[in-house]
Design a protein around this nucleic acid. Sequence first.
RNA 1: GCACCCGUAGUUCAAUGGAUAGAAUACCGGAUUCCGGUUCCGACGAUGUGGGUUCGAUUCCCGCCGGGUGUACCA
Length: 616
Amino acid sequence: MTEHTFFVPLSFQFRDINRMNIEQTLQEAILQAIKELYQADAEASQITLQKTKKEFTGHYTLVTFPLLRISRKKPEETAQEIGTYLVENAPVVTEFNVIKGFLNLTISPAVWVNLLREINADPDHGFTPVTDDAPLFMVEYSSPNTNKPLHLGHVRNNLLGHSLCEVLKANGKRVVKTNIVNDRGIHICKSMLAWQLWGNGETPESSGKKGDHLIGDYYVLFDKKHKEEQAVLQEKGLSKEEAEAGSKLMEQAREMLRRWEAGDEETVALWKKMNDWVYAGFDETYQQMGVSFDKIYYESETYLPGKEEVLKGLEKGLFYRKEDGSVWADLSPTGLDHKLLLRADGTSVYMTQDIGTAKLRFDDYPIDTMIYVVGNEQNYHFQVLSILLDMLGFEFGKGLVHFSYGMVELPEGKMKSREGTVVDADDLMAEMIETARETSAELGKLDEATPEEAEAIARMVGLGALKYFILKVDPKKNMTFNPQESIDFNGNTGPFIQYTHARVRSILRKAEEQGIALPDKLDTGALLSEKEEGLVQLLSEFGTVVKQAGSEYNVSLIGNYVYELAKEFNQFYHDHPILREENTALRDFRLLLSKNVALTIKRGMKLFGIDVPERM
RNA sequence: GCACCCGUAGUUCAAUGGAUAGAAUACCGGAUUCCGGUUCCGACGAUGUGGGUUCGAUUCCCGCCGGGUGUACCA
């Protein structure tokens, strides 16, 4: 790495260059250059500017190939001419070099100092404040069933949902976080029945179990008893189908569902009691995970409105009824198939409920964009939902977004509920925190901390490891979660980023102890290295990354950005002094840079729902 | 069968149509040390396959191969 000395004059003249706009300034200058050199107007889209790769000198690179049609010259020649023009006429550009068709531009060091100063002065750096008239986004995520606890798959869902909301807010959108709870249906009745038959009045209090785990256990128990029953029947010589048809347990469960739908008081009371246990359990899990909701919908309240909408659609002739009474939508004009909306017995299916839920939501809020965070196994479902809502006359149907994500596997392989290899969310989080505690103790990092501090840090690190590892991966891809790798203090991990933050904060604390004040302005000369300029450049890109993440609904972009920032800082300042630097101008620059690196890491991690400790 | 998604170092992940495809981790070599376990440096190592579009393709289009998911009365 080469270091070069620049004296930054007090009165440099780049007032017109504000921080986010270096690229824009360059683009305009390049357009101007083309106009003067070739007497032609280029489209802004023809100006492809990108960050200069590390192995070359420069900050930004102009790819000249798209411009050859205008210049009618060779790539090298074109680059040479534009470069010369820019150095002579654009104050931002101080040097250039040409490699093949690539024009590498070096930005004046004064610009970087100025940029850092402006970033520091902007309390919203990277984020757009939310205004009252901003577009309203509703984001549905989590969507649990009330018959079993949350597992690893839900963890990815919750983290993505929460993170997406944070990213949208950082982009100035109004966000309503919502959850749809699947609280009715045969699966709940199985748990209820098992509890009635074999529960002996067990409660979360009496058993010491979380409510959702308790109910989950009864669901499993039902399954076990049902299998035993089937085995007995099959031993008596019944076929598999006959045994299933003759199941007393299933019959009782279905009977319970009928009573529930009929509003039978006792059944409804039991249902309510057991669901409340589950909700208490979920609340604990959500709190531990750090996610929350503004408004929760329950399918028990949306399936009837859904039915109404379907019947209305039937009247309007949008749907048709078969001889057996079932209601269908013919989607063949859109290239899809026929879709069932109401069963022959008049009861609703999943799709019916989602139509009802959508209607209630749009009655409740002036939603501009509805986003569903749901696994990719339901891609087809949401494609159909969008079309159906549109057919029913809801304008929002067409624009709904299915934020589709892939499965999470473990290094050992897939989770299979039948084989008992499902990873429970509560257990997982507890283990992560425990591992963080052990690792910290081993490394002796927290010897000076109070037990409360140590506990809080273990929590941040354990959960940070989990969250970062899951969120850094492109949501739409299937992924493998490796708990061990995730909690490593080196590498592209949450703990490494947290460590870097703690390290920067420690530097700033020491500065304060030594009576070195953070500068409020940088108006002196500084000796900047390429790395330092690169760090300022990285800092300035934060806003762009956040914006891109928001417009693409792809939160993983944030992770890679923050990691790079942390890594670059950590690497460079491992053996470059900050506090012992004798040149005070340089020291001031480094302090201010440190402060803003820490702030940006903190802001970035906030978008992941990850807390960063002051020390660790 | 049909539809959608995914195939990148041993492994886990990157790469708005741009330069010699980046990290991390593992393994190997060197340095460092209270240390087989820490830290630093170095080396090794990849676009499933065949075409097409383009000045330029991991990226876009078509055909294969492989994996995943879904596909009319589960949610």
